[in-house]
Design a protein around this nucleic acid. Sequence first.
DNA 1: GAAAGCAAGTTTGTATGCAAACTTGCGTGC
DNA 2: GCACGCAAGTTTGCATACAAACTTGCTTTC
Lengths: 218, 218
Amino acid sequence: MSPTELPQSRLSSDVYSALRRQIVTGELRPNQPLIELDLAERLQVSRTPVRESLQRLAHAGLVVPRKRGWAVREFTPDEIRQNAELRMVLEGYAASLAATRGSPSDIAAIAAIHERRLKLRSSDEEMRVKTNRDFHDAIMCASGNERLTDAIYHSGQFYFNAPIARATTGEELSFGNADHAQIVAAILKRDGPAAERAMRSHIQRTFAVFWKVTGLHV
Amino acid sequence: MSPTELPQSRLSSDVYSALRRQIVTGELRPNQPLIELDLAERLQVSRTPVRESLQRLAHAGLVVPRKRGWAVREFTPDEIRQNAELRMVLEGYAASLAATRGSPSDIAAIAAIHERRLKLRSSDEEMRVKTNRDFHDAIMCASGNERLTDAIYHSGQFYFNAPIARATTGEELSFGNADHAQIVAAILKRDGPAAERAMRSHIQRTFAVFWKVTGLHV
DNA sequence: GAAAGCAAGTTTGTATGCAAACTTGCGTGC
DNA sequence: GCACGCAAGTTTGCATACAAACTTGCTTTC
């Protein structure tokens, strides 16, 4: 997990995780005002850990300040597009670094995850989502740049991962694997620029599917 | 300023700014333990706003949790290098976007700042630092991607800007301007890939000077 | 009937109280 | 003399108290 997911104390961290989850899953709807006392009562804690969690959520970009108090951030279609663009750049460079600086074992791990994913049936949605995340995680890890990895996490991708996973269709599985194959091939050839291009294209295509399915216009 | 610089309350925000400044300027040394009560007394507030500021500083990456309490984060040479790499990627893409999507007035502003900077004397250190920041800000602004801009701010560049500014020598002024000229030329030609390459090279060269001057090895 | 003002109620921002966890240092026993 | 343990002192984490700012709705007056 990201270094900014501080272990720190028990309660405050639990509250942070709980609120984050509820925001990401949509249980707390965008623009919904967050009343400290309400949250504190629902989570059976005092206002103090709630306040600290809200501060951290605000810094993470999931919560925004209002004239009075806080609200769940609403992402506009354009912000989602901008976020996708950011992720494309960051992960693209991670792929480039994985190709040029990744250790042999890092690269073997990436290839192994890819091979495993090729054998999945289209119907195994859950496993498809998991191996996809594993694939991207492995590349980030192989990049060897934790600041970069951290920025990718920070980029708020989690907020959109679940919807994208749900939105992507069986059809996407094929091009997804084809994209991954291209990325793996470039990394195996130690071709940084090719890996970067392949990853950028892959994320662009993924979000194109997302936008088609969700009907968002950008 | 970055959207994460929340206005929010008066006191808590003042404390955040004060602590951030003291960390960035080195007044609070790396690895120095941060005792809530000490900080509260020094800043003449109670522990509550101090605690909230520490949470936010931790999320910003300037402060790290210890078994007991917090400490000013110490950046290792490798983390500084990784940060430079991150900034290179982010600003590189910002330059690319500025070239391909920047409005004519955005691009005119970039060119104007560059022209202004060319006329500076080497001795005018303060103005040199200011126009440099203006130049990079103008490109970020022209990129039209606020998530990207935000990530650049978040990348913690401020932490290193002052040392870099001090470390860079008169010699750097020449290649700095040459680099900027290349970037401006690519943007004026609306050549995204060239702008991206030029910006990446520029930041790599800038940090090479920084490392030479500070004697850090990476 | 509408508008202005006042009062009651929310909700936040800050301070402080209190207990638990950890640290430190001294003393005692082996 | 060394090590272990206990006790005093820090320091944090959480809860709560209190005051200030803002909202809301009612009442009164024009």
